[in-house]
Nucleic acid binder design. Structure first.
Lengths: 131, 131
DNA sequence: TTTTCATTTCAGATTCTTTTGAAATATCGA
DNA sequence: TCGATATTTCAAAAGAATCTGAAATGAAAA
């Protein structure tokens, strides 16, 4: 709080070409103004965090082939129930998958968002054989 | 090791529609075969991990506007040198940005990969004013 | 109703990531 | 050469994500 600087380049020495183009976009303040808001960045980074795990990507790839119940996913991955449940909850909380109860089972499928992101990751490897 | 099951659906009871479509794609084994390899999944999840932080996304957004030296990035973000350096190193290690020394400064810019991913994140908000 | 089965939840342990402040490096200008 | 400046590196601390096994839930079959 002691010293508020002018948002001009006066205060910090820069390499010439950076200084020039920084001026053209309105200095530090101008640059700052062009950036996405913190809340958007937070949401997007949260999305990426959900995708930042090989097991979860594999689950998405599986569900790109077809909707599946937990027990099949488990059979493919070969991991403990609670571990799988944890990863499913991460994907679900992020809106990438949704589960629908059917009798004793819960059948998970990709949401629209989940489908879009899964394509980003694995191309459409999954849809070759299946459709 | 005690009991190797056949990779057929015989062993696990399933909801009818899952069972049917699972059969059509070759059962557990067929499904497994369609999935991306573990090494690919590992690489891709690592990429997402680099994107899974709001500060790092903001850095990418800044560099989408123009190449910048560390001190400008620091002025915009208002964080400690070492903290910024850490995040830059994460992005650099993942090949999203590259730094080139120029005199006393290091000027970072997006790589081709970095540009592509940054577009995914923020659209091309950055390129409006700048080009 | 009791049992069984598929799945989730929970608490604690573990591991990975991020932050912090101090010290190191390296380049420039005097 | 010296001192200043920009940036990185390091080790320790703090924080967040993940894993584990046991217990809880809730629907269906007996």
């Amino acid at each position: 709080m002691a010293e508020d600087k002018k948002y001009q380049d006066a205060s910090l020495p820069l390499p010439p070409d950076v200084e020039e183009s920084l001026c053209r976009c309105g200095g530090i303040a101008g640059l700052t103004g062009q950036l996405p808001g913190d809340d958007l960045l937070k949401r997007e980074s949260a999305l990426f965090r959900a995708l930042a795990d090989p097991l979860r990507l594999k689950i998405l790839a599986m569900l790109a082939v077809q909707p599946l119940c937990v027990c099949v996913i488990k059979a493919v991955l070969g991991i403990a129930d609670s571990k799988l449940s944890y990863h499913l909850s991460v994907l679900k909380k992020m809106g990438l998958i949704a589960g629908e109860a059917q009798g004793n089972w819960i059948i998970y499928r990709l949401t629209a968002d989940g489908t879009a992101w899964t394509r980003q990751v694995i191309g459409d490897a999954g849809s070759r054989k299946n459709r």
